[in-house]
C-alpha cells in the first residue's frame, strides 16, 4: 500500500493503481472520455488531468496514465485544472459538436461557447473503438492510420477487413456516435444543453412536470425572484 494525498484527503492505495483509479475509488468526480473499465488507459482525451505537486512546482498530468506514487500530492479540481479542462472540452466540441457525450461534458463544466473554428467532424480520435477491437474482441480490425492532422481510424487499405466480425463493439463504445439532443434550444455549436439554457419553467403551475428533468434552474430562479421581492 502507498500513502498519498488527494484533494486534501490522506489515502492508502494499492501499488500499480492510477490516480484516476484512486479518485474513483474515493468517490472524487474526475471527468473522462477515453477511459473505460476493461480497456487499457490511453490518455487521449486529456480530460482527466489533475494537478500534482505542491507550491510553485506543480504540473498537469493525465490521471488515467499516471501511477500512484508515495507521497503524491494531487488536486483534482484546482483552478488551473478546471480552466485547462474547459479549453479541452471546447477543443473536443470544435472537433465533433454532434456528440451527446461531449455536449454533456461541456454542459457539466458550464462551457457555453466554442472559441475555436468548428469542424463538423465525427471522430475525436479517443481510440476507444481501437482498444475495444484489439483487447476485448481480439480482432485488431481497425486502428490508427497516418499521423498528425491526417490521423484517422480505419481498416487496412480502407477496405472491409478480413478479421472484422461486424460485432458492432466499436459503435457501442464510440462517444461520438450518439447524437446530441436538438431541442429545445436552437442548433449551434453548443447544443443548448439543459444546464445552459433558461428552461421554460412552469413556476406557477405546480401540477405539471418539467420536461427538462431535475436541472434545478427554476428553483434558483425562484430563489432570486424571492430575494428581489425582499429587497
Amino acid at each position: 500500500m502507498i500513502e498519498m494525498t488527494i484533494d486534501g484527503l490522506d489515502v492508502q492505495v494499492e501499488e500499480g493503481s492510477s490516480i484516476l483509479d484512486v479518485a474513483q475509488f474515493y468517490g472524487i468526480p474526475v471527468p473522462t472520455l477515453c477511459h473505460h473499465d476493461g480497456l487499457t488507459d490511453y490518455g487521449a482525451c486529456r480530460l482527466c488531468i489533475v494537478e500534482i505537486g505542491k507550491g510553485d512546482n506543480t504540473k498537469l498530468v493525465s490521471s488515467c496514465t499516471y501511477p500512484a506514487e508515495l507521497g503524491l500530492f494531487v488536486r483534482t479540481n484546482s483552478k488551473r485544472v478546471v480552466e485547462a479542462r474547459k479549453v479541452l472540452v471546447e477543443l473536443l466540441l470544435a472537433m465533433c459538436p454532434s456528440s451527446k457525450t461531449i455536449q454533456d461534458l461541456a454542459a457539466a463544466m458550464e462551457v457555453t461557447k466554442v472559441r475555436f473554428k468548428v469542424e463538423q467532424g465525427d471522430c475525436v480520435l479517443c481510440g476507444l473503438c481501437v482498444r475495444m477491437c484489439a483487447e476485448q474482441m481480439d480482432a485488431k480490425a481497425i486502428g490508427f492510420v497516418n499521423r498528425g492532422k491526417d490521423r484517422k481510424i480505419t481498416t487496412p487499405f480502407d477496405i472491409k477487413s478480413d478479421v472484422c466480425r461486424t460485432c458492432g463493439a466499436c459503435i457501442y463504445i464510440c462517444p461520438a456516435c450518439e447524437l446530441r439532443c436538438q431541442g429545445p434550444g436552437p442548433p449551434g455549436d453548443v447544443c443548448g444543453s439543459c444546464a445552459n439554457v433558461l428552461p421554460v419553467c412552469l413556476e406557477d403551475e405546480d401540477d405539471k412536470m418539467c420536461f427538462l428533468g431535475t436541472c434545478g434552474w427554476c428553483y434558483k430562479e425562484l430563489g432570486r425572484k424571492k430575494n428581489k421581492e425582499k429587497e
Binding site: K140, A141, I142, G143, F144, V145, N146, P156, S161, V163
Partner: peptide
C-alpha cells in the same frame, strides 16, 4: 504487407499503421 503480417504473426492493422505513419 499481407504476406508479411501472416508470416510474422503481426496483425495487418499494425503493419498498415506503421507503414502509413
Amino acid at each position: 504487407l499481407k504476406y508479411v503480417s501472416e508470416k510474422m504473426d503481426i496483425s495487418l492493422m499494425d503493419v498498415y499503421s506503421l507503414v502509413t505513419f
